[in-house]
Design a protein around this nucleic acid. Sequence first.
DNA 1: CGCCCACAGTGACTTACATCACGCAGCCAA
DNA 2: TTGGCTGCGTGATGTAAGTCACTGTGGGCG
Lengths: 215, 215
Amino acid sequence: MDSINKEEIQKQFPQFEQPLLDGILKESVIKHLEEGEPIIQTGQYIRSNILLLNGLLKVYREDDEGNEFLMYYLEPGSACALSMMCTDRRETSQVKAKAVQSSDVVLIPAHLSEQWLAKYKSWHNFVIGTYRERFEELLQTLDSIVFKSLDERLLFYLKRHVETIGSEIRLSHQQIAEELNSSREVISRLLKKLEQRGAVTLHRNYLKVHNLEKV
Amino acid sequence: MDSINKEEIQKQFPQFEQPLLDGILKESVIKHLEEGEPIIQTGQYIRSNILLLNGLLKVYREDDEGNEFLMYYLEPGSACALSMMCTDRRETSQVKAKAVQSSDVVLIPAHLSEQWLAKYKSWHNFVIGTYRERFEELLQTLDSIVFKSLDERLLFYLKRHVETIGSEIRLSHQQIAEELNSSREVISRLLKKLEQRGAVTLHRNYLKVHNLEKV
DNA sequence: CGCCCACAGTGACTTACATCACGCAGCCAA
DNA sequence: TTGGCTGCGTGATGTAAGTCACTGTGGGCG
Protein backbone atom coordinates (compact mmCIF):
# COMPACT_ATOMS: atom_id res chain seq x y z
CA MET A 1 0.00 0.00 0.00
CA ASP A 2 2.73 2.45 0.97
CA SER A 3 4.60 1.52 -2.18
CA ILE A 4 1.90 3.17 -4.28
CA ASN A 5 2.63 6.82 -4.66
CA LYS A 6 1.55 9.82 -6.58
CA GLU A 7 3.90 9.06 -9.43
CA GLU A 8 2.29 5.70 -10.06
CA ILE A 9 -1.21 7.13 -10.20
CA GLN A 10 0.00 9.99 -12.34
CA LYS A 11 1.60 7.56 -14.76
CA GLN A 12 -1.62 5.63 -15.31
CA PHE A 13 -3.87 8.69 -15.30
CA PRO A 14 -1.75 11.44 -16.86
CA GLN A 15 -4.82 13.38 -17.90
CA PHE A 16 -5.79 14.18 -14.31
CA GLU A 17 -4.99 17.69 -13.11
CA GLN A 18 -2.80 18.21 -10.06
CA PRO A 19 -5.49 19.12 -7.49
CA LEU A 20 -7.47 16.05 -8.52
CA LEU A 21 -4.42 13.84 -8.07
CA ASP A 22 -3.93 15.36 -4.64
CA GLY A 23 -7.57 14.68 -3.83
CA ILE A 24 -7.25 11.08 -4.91
CA LEU A 25 -4.12 10.58 -2.83
CA LYS A 26 -5.74 12.13 0.19
CA GLU A 27 -9.20 10.61 0.09
CA SER A 28 -9.06 7.32 -1.72
CA VAL A 29 -8.06 3.87 -0.60
CA ILE A 30 -5.68 1.68 -2.49
CA LYS A 31 -6.40 -2.00 -2.42
CA HIS A 32 -4.29 -4.86 -3.56
CA LEU A 33 -5.96 -7.87 -5.16
CA GLU A 34 -4.40 -11.29 -5.48
CA GLU A 35 -4.91 -13.28 -8.63
CA GLY A 36 -8.47 -14.60 -8.68
CA GLU A 37 -9.69 -12.33 -5.90
CA PRO A 38 -13.16 -10.88 -6.44
CA ILE A 39 -13.69 -7.12 -6.28
CA ILE A 40 -17.39 -6.81 -7.05
CA GLN A 41 -19.52 -9.52 -5.59
CA THR A 42 -23.08 -10.62 -5.97
CA GLY A 43 -25.67 -8.24 -4.65
CA GLN A 44 -23.07 -5.98 -3.15
CA TYR A 45 -23.97 -2.33 -3.07
CA ILE A 46 -21.13 -0.49 -4.71
CA ARG A 47 -20.10 2.61 -2.88
CA SER A 48 -16.82 3.34 -4.60
CA ASN A 49 -15.48 4.03 -8.00
CA ILE A 50 -12.82 1.58 -9.02
CA LEU A 51 -9.75 2.69 -10.97
CA LEU A 52 -7.20 0.14 -12.06
CA LEU A 53 -3.58 1.01 -11.38
CA ASN A 54 -1.89 -2.17 -12.52
CA GLY A 55 -2.74 -5.79 -13.19
CA LEU A 56 -5.88 -6.92 -15.00
CA LEU A 57 -9.53 -7.23 -14.03
CA LYS A 58 -12.22 -9.28 -15.63
CA VAL A 59 -15.81 -8.04 -15.57
CA TYR A 60 -18.47 -10.63 -16.14
CA ARG A 61 -22.11 -11.40 -15.74
CA GLU A 62 -23.43 -14.34 -13.77
CA ASP A 63 -26.93 -15.74 -13.74
CA ASP A 64 -28.79 -17.48 -10.95
CA GLU A 65 -27.42 -20.89 -11.90
CA GLY A 66 -23.82 -19.75 -11.71
CA ASN A 67 -23.29 -19.51 -15.45
CA GLU A 68 -20.73 -16.89 -16.31
CA PHE A 69 -20.40 -14.65 -19.28
CA LEU A 70 -17.44 -12.38 -19.98
CA MET A 71 -18.30 -8.74 -20.56
CA TYR A 72 -14.83 -7.26 -20.91
CA TYR A 73 -11.39 -6.92 -19.43
CA LEU A 74 -10.23 -3.79 -17.61
CA GLU A 75 -6.69 -2.60 -18.12
CA PRO A 76 -4.55 -0.20 -16.06
CA GLY A 77 -5.60 3.39 -16.58
CA SER A 78 -9.25 2.55 -16.97
CA ALA A 79 -12.19 2.42 -14.63
CA CYS A 80 -15.12 0.16 -14.05
CA ALA A 81 -18.18 1.88 -15.49
CA LEU A 82 -20.39 -0.29 -13.35
CA SER A 83 -18.80 0.88 -10.16
CA MET A 84 -19.85 4.36 -11.25
CA MET A 85 -23.53 3.68 -11.31
CA CYS A 86 -24.57 2.79 -7.84
CA THR A 87 -28.02 1.63 -8.74
CA ASP A 88 -29.57 -1.07 -6.68
CA ARG A 89 -28.79 -4.48 -8.00
CA ARG A 90 -31.69 -6.67 -7.15
CA GLU A 91 -31.94 -8.48 -10.44
CA THR A 92 -31.26 -12.17 -10.56
CA SER A 93 -28.27 -11.72 -12.79
CA GLN A 94 -25.31 -9.92 -11.35
CA VAL A 95 -22.28 -8.14 -12.59
CA LYS A 96 -19.16 -9.43 -10.98
CA ALA A 97 -15.50 -8.55 -11.30
CA LYS A 98 -12.35 -10.26 -10.22
CA ALA A 99 -8.62 -9.93 -10.66
CA VAL A 100 -7.16 -12.04 -13.44
CA GLN A 101 -3.67 -11.08 -12.37
CA SER A 102 -2.44 -9.62 -9.15
CA SER A 103 -3.66 -6.02 -9.29
CA ASP A 104 -3.82 -2.71 -7.48
CA VAL A 105 -6.99 -0.64 -7.58
CA VAL A 106 -7.89 2.82 -6.35
CA LEU A 107 -11.22 3.04 -4.54
CA ILE A 108 -12.82 6.45 -4.69
CA PRO A 109 -15.85 7.01 -2.47
CA ALA A 110 -18.98 7.68 -4.51
CA HIS A 111 -19.77 11.03 -2.89
CA LEU A 112 -16.32 12.36 -3.80
CA SER A 113 -16.68 11.17 -7.34
CA GLU A 114 -19.93 13.13 -7.53
CA GLN A 115 -18.28 16.28 -6.23
CA TRP A 116 -15.34 15.95 -8.53
CA LEU A 117 -17.54 15.68 -11.59
CA ALA A 118 -18.40 19.33 -11.22
CA LYS A 119 -15.05 20.40 -9.81
CA TYR A 120 -12.50 18.81 -12.13
CA LYS A 121 -12.94 18.84 -15.86
CA SER A 122 -10.49 15.98 -16.33
CA TRP A 123 -12.47 13.81 -13.93
CA HIS A 124 -15.67 14.65 -15.69
CA ASN A 125 -14.20 13.77 -19.06
CA PHE A 126 -12.78 10.59 -17.66
CA VAL A 127 -16.13 9.45 -16.29
CA ILE A 128 -18.05 10.31 -19.43
CA GLY A 129 -15.37 8.67 -21.55
CA THR A 130 -15.52 5.53 -19.46
CA TYR A 131 -19.27 5.28 -19.95
CA ARG A 132 -18.85 5.70 -23.68
CA GLU A 133 -16.15 3.10 -24.05
CA ARG A 134 -17.92 0.47 -22.00
CA PHE A 135 -21.19 1.15 -23.75
CA GLU A 136 -19.50 0.64 -27.09
CA GLU A 137 -17.83 -2.50 -25.87
CA LEU A 138 -21.09 -3.88 -24.55
CA LEU A 139 -22.76 -3.15 -27.86
CA GLN A 140 -20.09 -5.09 -29.70
CA THR A 141 -20.53 -7.99 -27.34
CA LEU A 142 -24.28 -7.87 -27.83
CA ASP A 143 -23.79 -7.96 -31.57
CA SER A 144 -21.58 -10.96 -31.48
CA ILE A 145 -24.20 -12.89 -29.54
CA VAL A 146 -27.28 -11.82 -31.42
CA PHE A 147 -26.01 -12.06 -34.95
CA LYS A 148 -23.04 -14.40 -34.92
CA SER A 149 -22.64 -18.13 -34.52
CA LEU A 150 -20.41 -19.64 -31.89
CA ASP A 151 -17.38 -20.01 -34.14
CA GLU A 152 -17.46 -16.31 -34.95
CA ARG A 153 -17.96 -15.46 -31.30
CA LEU A 154 -14.93 -17.56 -30.44
CA LEU A 155 -12.88 -15.61 -32.97
CA PHE A 156 -14.13 -12.33 -31.51
CA TYR A 157 -13.23 -13.58 -28.05
CA LEU A 158 -9.74 -14.67 -29.08
CA LYS A 159 -9.06 -11.39 -30.84
CA ARG A 160 -10.04 -9.37 -27.82
CA HIS A 161 -7.91 -11.59 -25.63
CA VAL A 162 -4.90 -11.09 -27.88
CA GLU A 163 -5.40 -7.32 -27.84
CA THR A 164 -5.71 -6.98 -24.10
CA ILE A 165 -3.57 -9.78 -22.72
CA GLY A 166 -1.44 -11.24 -25.47
CA SER A 167 -1.35 -14.02 -28.02
CA GLU A 168 -0.53 -16.70 -25.49
CA ILE A 169 -3.80 -17.64 -23.87
CA ARG A 170 -3.22 -19.46 -20.62
CA LEU A 171 -6.67 -20.94 -20.20
CA SER A 172 -8.08 -24.44 -20.49
CA HIS A 173 -10.80 -25.18 -23.01
CA GLN A 174 -13.14 -25.48 -20.06
CA GLN A 175 -12.39 -21.93 -18.93
CA ILE A 176 -12.87 -20.50 -22.41
CA ALA A 177 -16.16 -22.34 -22.69
CA GLU A 178 -17.34 -20.77 -19.44
CA GLU A 179 -16.49 -17.27 -20.56
CA LEU A 180 -18.56 -17.78 -23.68
CA ASN A 181 -21.27 -19.62 -21.77
CA SER A 182 -20.77 -22.68 -23.93
CA SER A 183 -19.46 -26.20 -23.25
CA ARG A 184 -15.97 -27.64 -23.32
CA GLU A 185 -16.56 -30.21 -26.06
CA VAL A 186 -17.90 -27.64 -28.48
CA ILE A 187 -15.04 -25.23 -27.83
CA SER A 188 -12.54 -28.07 -28.23
CA ARG A 189 -13.95 -28.94 -31.63
CA LEU A 190 -13.95 -25.33 -32.81
CA LEU A 191 -10.41 -24.75 -31.56
CA LYS A 192 -9.27 -27.87 -33.35
CA LYS A 193 -10.74 -26.54 -36.59
CA LEU A 194 -8.83 -23.30 -36.06
CA GLU A 195 -5.65 -25.25 -35.44
CA GLN A 196 -6.14 -27.19 -38.68
CA ARG A 197 -6.37 -23.89 -40.51
CA GLY A 198 -3.16 -22.71 -38.88
CA ALA A 199 -4.72 -19.93 -36.85
CA VAL A 200 -3.69 -21.28 -33.46
CA THR A 201 -1.64 -24.03 -31.90
CA LEU A 202 -3.11 -25.97 -29.01
CA HIS A 203 -1.33 -27.16 -25.89
CA ARG A 204 -2.28 -28.47 -22.54
CA ASN A 205 -3.68 -25.58 -20.45
CA TYR A 206 -2.76 -22.93 -22.97
CA LEU A 207 -2.85 -22.06 -26.63
CA LYS A 208 -1.03 -19.68 -28.94
CA VAL A 209 -2.75 -17.44 -31.43
CA HIS A 210 -0.99 -16.79 -34.73
CA ASN A 211 -3.24 -15.14 -37.29
CA LEU A 212 -6.95 -14.85 -36.84
CA GLU A 213 -7.57 -12.47 -39.70
CA LYS A 214 -7.19 -14.80 -42.64
CA VAL A 215 -9.47 -17.46 -41.18
CA MET B 1 -42.67 23.48 -34.91
CA ASP B 2 -44.12 26.76 -33.66
CA SER B 3 -46.65 24.84 -31.62
CA ILE B 4 -43.87 23.53 -29.39
CA ASN B 5 -43.19 25.96 -26.64
CA LYS B 6 -41.31 26.30 -23.43
CA GLU B 7 -44.16 24.85 -21.43
CA GLU B 8 -44.12 21.61 -23.38
CA ILE B 9 -40.39 21.12 -22.90
CA GLN B 10 -40.69 22.08 -19.26
CA LYS B 11 -43.44 19.54 -18.78
CA GLN B 12 -41.32 16.69 -20.10
CA PHE B 13 -38.10 17.85 -18.47
CA PRO B 14 -39.19 19.47 -15.22
CA GLN B 15 -35.80 18.91 -13.64
CA PHE B 16 -34.07 21.40 -15.97
CA GLU B 17 -33.27 24.78 -14.48
CA GLN B 18 -34.61 27.93 -16.12
CA PRO B 19 -31.43 29.16 -17.87
CA LEU B 20 -30.98 25.70 -19.35
CA LEU B 21 -34.54 25.70 -20.68
CA ASP B 22 -33.90 29.12 -22.19
CA GLY B 23 -30.73 27.78 -23.78
CA ILE B 24 -32.58 24.83 -25.24
CA LEU B 25 -35.32 27.05 -26.64
CA LYS B 26 -32.81 29.41 -28.15
CA GLU B 27 -30.26 27.02 -29.58
CA SER B 28 -31.93 23.72 -30.32
CA VAL B 29 -34.00 22.56 -33.23
CA ILE B 30 -37.30 20.79 -32.85
CA LYS B 31 -38.03 18.15 -35.39
CA HIS B 32 -41.22 16.32 -36.07
CA LEU B 33 -41.09 12.68 -37.08
CA GLU B 34 -43.84 10.80 -38.81
CA GLU B 35 -44.62 7.24 -37.81
CA GLY B 36 -41.89 4.98 -39.15
CA GLU B 37 -39.49 7.81 -39.95
CA PRO B 38 -35.84 7.09 -39.12
CA ILE B 39 -33.90 9.47 -36.90
CA ILE B 40 -30.52 7.78 -36.69
CA GLN B 41 -29.43 6.10 -39.87
CA THR B 42 -26.67 3.74 -40.82
CA GLY B 43 -23.20 5.18 -40.64
CA GLN B 44 -24.48 8.64 -39.94
CA TYR B 45 -22.24 10.79 -37.80
CA ILE B 46 -24.37 12.04 -34.96
CA ARG B 47 -23.85 15.68 -34.18
CA SER B 48 -26.80 16.29 -31.92
CA ASN B 49 -28.26 15.06 -28.72
CA ILE B 50 -31.77 13.80 -29.13
CA LEU B 51 -34.41 14.42 -26.49
CA LEU B 52 -37.88 13.01 -26.93
CA LEU B 53 -40.77 15.42 -26.32
CA ASN B 54 -43.67 13.21 -27.27
CA GLY B 55 -44.38 10.06 -29.24
CA LEU B 56 -42.24 6.96 -29.10
CA LEU B 57 -38.88 5.98 -30.57
CA LYS B 58 -37.43 2.57 -31.08
CA VAL B 59 -33.69 2.05 -30.86
CA TYR B 60 -32.33 -1.04 -32.52
CA ARG B 61 -29.25 -2.67 -33.87
CA GLU B 62 -28.89 -3.83 -37.44
CA ASP B 63 -26.22 -6.09 -38.88
CA ASP B 64 -24.76 -6.13 -42.38
CA GLU B 65 -27.45 -8.46 -43.67
CA GLY B 66 -30.30 -6.25 -42.56
CA ASN B 67 -31.22 -8.30 -39.51
CA GLU B 68 -32.68 -6.15 -36.80
CA PHE B 69 -32.56 -6.46 -33.07
CA LEU B 70 -34.49 -4.31 -30.64
CA MET B 71 -32.41 -2.58 -27.97
CA TYR B 72 -35.07 -0.51 -26.24
CA TYR B 73 -37.86 1.98 -26.60
CA LEU B 74 -37.45 5.65 -25.76
CA GLU B 75 -40.31 7.46 -24.07
CA PRO B 76 -41.02 11.18 -23.75
CA GLY B 77 -38.76 12.86 -21.20
CA SER B 78 -35.81 10.64 -22.00
CA ALA B 79 -32.85 10.97 -24.29
CA CYS B 80 -30.97 8.71 -26.63
CA ALA B 81 -27.72 7.76 -24.90
CA LEU B 82 -26.23 6.85 -28.23
CA SER B 83 -26.75 10.29 -29.63
CA MET B 84 -24.64 11.49 -26.74
CA MET B 85 -21.55 9.63 -27.67
CA CYS B 86 -20.42 10.88 -30.99
CA THR B 87 -17.87 8.21 -31.60
CA ASP B 88 -17.20 7.16 -35.12
CA ARG B 89 -19.39 4.30 -36.16
CA ARG B 90 -17.49 2.30 -38.68
CA GLU B 91 -18.43 -1.12 -37.43
CA THR B 92 -20.46 -3.38 -39.62
CA SER B 93 -23.36 -3.37 -37.21
CA GLN B 94 -25.13 -0.10 -36.69
CA VAL B 95 -27.39 1.43 -34.14
CA LYS B 96 -30.49 2.83 -35.70
CA ALA B 97 -33.55 4.58 -34.34
CA LYS B 98 -36.91 5.36 -35.76
CA ALA B 99 -40.26 6.72 -34.68
CA VAL B 100 -42.81 4.09 -33.75
CA GLN B 101 -45.45 6.74 -33.41
CA SER B 102 -45.53 10.26 -34.71
CA SER B 103 -43.07 12.08 -32.45
CA ASP B 104 -41.39 15.39 -31.68
CA VAL B 105 -37.73 15.48 -30.75
CA VAL B 106 -35.40 18.22 -29.58
CA LEU B 107 -32.03 18.25 -31.29
CA ILE B 108 -29.27 19.81 -29.23
CA PRO B 109 -25.97 20.45 -31.01
CA ALA B 110 -23.15 18.40 -29.53
CA HIS B 111 -20.90 21.35 -28.71
CA LEU B 112 -23.66 22.93 -26.62
CA SER B 113 -24.30 19.73 -24.80
CA GLU B 114 -20.63 19.66 -23.89
CA GLN B 115 -20.72 23.22 -22.60
CA TRP B 116 -23.87 22.63 -20.62
CA LEU B 117 -22.41 19.63 -18.85
CA ALA B 118 -20.14 21.96 -16.92
CA LYS B 119 -22.58 24.85 -16.77
CA TYR B 120 -25.84 23.29 -15.66
CA LYS B 121 -25.98 20.72 -12.91
CA SER B 122 -29.39 19.47 -14.02
CA TRP B 123 -28.09 18.84 -17.51
CA HIS B 124 -25.10 17.02 -16.14
CA ASN B 125 -27.27 14.80 -13.96
CA PHE B 126 -29.60 14.16 -16.84
CA VAL B 127 -26.78 13.01 -19.11
CA ILE B 128 -25.16 10.81 -16.48
CA GLY B 129 -28.55 9.39 -15.56
CA THR B 130 -29.31 8.61 -19.17
CA TYR B 131 -26.08 6.69 -19.52
CA ARG B 132 -26.85 4.71 -16.42
CA GLU B 133 -30.36 3.78 -17.40
CA ARG B 134 -29.43 2.71 -20.90
CA PHE B 135 -26.47 0.76 -19.62
CA GLU B 136 -28.71 -1.10 -17.20
CA GLU B 137 -31.24 -1.75 -19.90
CA LEU B 138 -28.60 -3.03 -22.26
CA LEU B 139 -27.29 -5.35 -19.56
CA GLN B 140 -30.74 -6.80 -19.04
CA THR B 141 -31.09 -7.36 -22.75
CA LEU B 142 -27.70 -9.02 -22.85
CA ASP B 143 -28.74 -11.31 -20.04
CA SER B 144 -31.88 -12.40 -21.72
CA ILE B 145 -29.95 -13.43 -24.81
CA VAL B 146 -27.02 -15.11 -23.16
CA PHE B 147 -28.80 -17.06 -20.51
CA LYS B 148 -32.39 -17.46 -21.64
CA SER B 149 -34.13 -19.49 -24.30
CA LEU B 150 -36.34 -17.92 -26.90
CA ASP B 151 -39.59 -18.49 -25.02
CA GLU B 152 -38.23 -16.62 -22.01
CA ARG B 153 -36.90 -13.89 -24.26
CA LEU B 154 -40.33 -13.54 -25.81
CA LEU B 155 -41.85 -13.13 -22.35
CA PHE B 156 -39.23 -10.50 -21.49
CA TYR B 157 -40.01 -8.72 -24.74
CA LEU B 158 -43.76 -8.79 -24.18
CA LYS B 159 -43.41 -7.52 -20.64
CA ARG B 160 -41.29 -4.61 -21.73
CA HIS B 161 -43.73 -3.83 -24.48
CA VAL B 162 -46.64 -3.80 -22.04
CA GLU B 163 -44.74 -1.51 -19.70
CA THR B 164 -43.76 1.05 -22.29
CA ILE B 165 -46.54 0.92 -24.83
CA GLY B 166 -49.46 -1.02 -23.43
CA SER B 167 -51.01 -4.45 -23.33
CA GLU B 168 -52.37 -4.26 -26.85
CA ILE B 169 -49.49 -5.07 -29.14
CA ARG B 170 -50.20 -3.91 -32.65
CA LEU B 171 -47.55 -5.93 -34.41
CA SER B 172 -47.65 -8.94 -36.69
CA HIS B 173 -45.86 -12.12 -35.70
CA GLN B 174 -43.39 -11.28 -38.42
CA GLN B 175 -42.52 -7.95 -36.84
CA ILE B 176 -42.10 -9.46 -33.39
CA ALA B 177 -39.85 -12.12 -34.87
CA GLU B 178 -37.66 -9.44 -36.43
CA GLU B 179 -37.27 -7.53 -33.20
CA LEU B 180 -36.08 -10.70 -31.52
CA ASN B 181 -34.00 -11.69 -34.54
CA SER B 182 -35.97 -14.91 -34.85
CA SER B 183 -38.40 -16.26 -37.43
CA ARG B 184 -42.14 -15.90 -37.85
CA GLU B 185 -43.01 -19.58 -37.57
CA VAL B 186 -41.20 -20.00 -34.27
CA ILE B 187 -42.78 -16.91 -32.77
CA SER B 188 -46.19 -18.05 -33.97
CA ARG B 189 -45.75 -21.39 -32.24
CA LEU B 190 -44.56 -19.81 -28.99
CA LEU B 191 -47.37 -17.26 -29.01
CA LYS B 192 -49.87 -20.02 -29.57
CA LYS B 193 -48.54 -21.83 -26.52
CA LEU B 194 -48.96 -18.64 -24.50
CA GLU B 195 -52.51 -18.31 -25.78
CA GLN B 196 -53.32 -21.86 -24.72
CA ARG B 197 -52.12 -20.99 -21.24
CA GLY B 198 -54.34 -17.92 -21.21
CA ALA B 199 -51.56 -15.37 -21.11
CA VAL B 200 -52.48 -13.65 -24.37
CA THR B 201 -55.16 -13.65 -27.05
CA LEU B 202 -54.09 -13.59 -30.67
CA HIS B 203 -55.65 -11.67 -33.52
CA ARG B 204 -54.74 -10.68 -37.00
CA ASN B 205 -52.05 -7.98 -36.86
CA TYR B 206 -52.29 -7.53 -33.12
CA LEU B 207 -52.46 -9.40 -29.84
CA LYS B 208 -53.57 -8.64 -26.31
CA VAL B 209 -51.54 -9.46 -23.23
CA HIS B 210 -53.43 -10.51 -20.10
CA ASN B 211 -51.17 -11.96 -17.45
CA LEU B 212 -47.57 -12.90 -18.13
CA GLU B 213 -46.54 -13.44 -14.54
CA LYS B 214 -48.25 -16.73 -13.83
CA VAL B 215 -46.96 -18.42 -16.98
C1' DC C 1 8.50 -46.10 -11.42
C1' DG C 2 3.49 -46.34 -11.72
C1' DC C 3 -0.68 -44.21 -10.13
C1' DC C 4 -3.83 -40.63 -10.37
C1' DC C 5 -6.23 -36.84 -12.13
C1' DA C 6 -7.28 -32.92 -14.74
C1' DC C 7 -7.38 -31.89 -19.52
C1' DA C 8 -8.42 -33.03 -24.10
C1' DG C 9 -10.53 -35.80 -28.30
C1' DT C 10 -14.43 -38.10 -30.20
C1' DG C 11 -18.67 -40.51 -31.63
C1' DA C 12 -23.69 -40.90 -30.61
C1' DC C 13 -27.55 -38.72 -29.36
C1' DT C 14 -30.81 -34.80 -27.99
C1' DT C 15 -32.61 -30.32 -28.27
C1' DA C 16 -33.80 -25.78 -29.84
C1' DC C 17 -34.44 -23.24 -33.38
C1' DA C 18 -34.36 -22.15 -38.48
C1' DT C 19 -35.95 -23.20 -42.86
C1' DC C 20 -39.00 -25.06 -46.31
C1' DA C 21 -43.34 -26.06 -48.24
C1' DC C 22 -47.79 -25.72 -48.25
C1' DG C 23 -52.65 -24.70 -47.00
C1' DC C 24 -56.06 -21.61 -45.39
C1' DA C 25 -58.57 -17.49 -43.88
C1' DG C 26 -59.63 -12.64 -43.92
C1' DC C 27 -59.75 -8.60 -46.51
C1' DC C 28 -59.39 -5.26 -50.15
C1' DA C 29 -59.92 -3.91 -54.75
C1' DA C 30 -60.69 -4.74 -59.71
C1' DT D 1 -67.89 -12.04 -57.26
C1' DT D 2 -63.41 -13.34 -57.69
C1' DG D 3 -58.71 -13.03 -57.59
C1' DG D 4 -54.82 -11.97 -55.07
C1' DC D 5 -52.27 -10.45 -51.16
C1' DT D 6 -50.90 -10.72 -46.52
C1' DG D 7 -50.85 -12.83 -42.15
C1' DC D 8 -51.12 -17.05 -39.77
C1' DG D 9 -50.96 -22.42 -38.77
C1' DT D 10 -48.47 -26.55 -39.25
C1' DG D 11 -45.87 -30.70 -40.50
C1' DA D 12 -41.30 -32.19 -42.37
C1' DT D 13 -36.66 -31.58 -42.42
C1' DG D 14 -32.05 -29.35 -41.63
C1' DT D 15 -28.49 -27.62 -38.62
C1' DA D 16 -25.85 -25.70 -34.77
C1' DA D 17 -24.90 -26.52 -30.45
C1' DG D 18 -25.46 -28.92 -25.92
C1' DT D 19 -25.10 -33.39 -23.53
C1' DC D 20 -23.47 -37.99 -22.51
C1' DA D 21 -20.27 -41.54 -22.33
C1' DC D 22 -16.14 -43.04 -23.06
C1' DT D 23 -11.07 -43.06 -24.34
C1' DG D 24 -6.61 -41.22 -24.48
C1' DT D 25 -2.78 -38.46 -22.58
C1' DG D 26 0.54 -35.89 -20.17
C1' DG D 27 2.33 -34.29 -15.89
C1' DG D 28 2.86 -34.26 -11.01
C1' DC D 29 3.66 -36.81 -7.00
C1' DG D 30 3.84 -40.47 -3.68
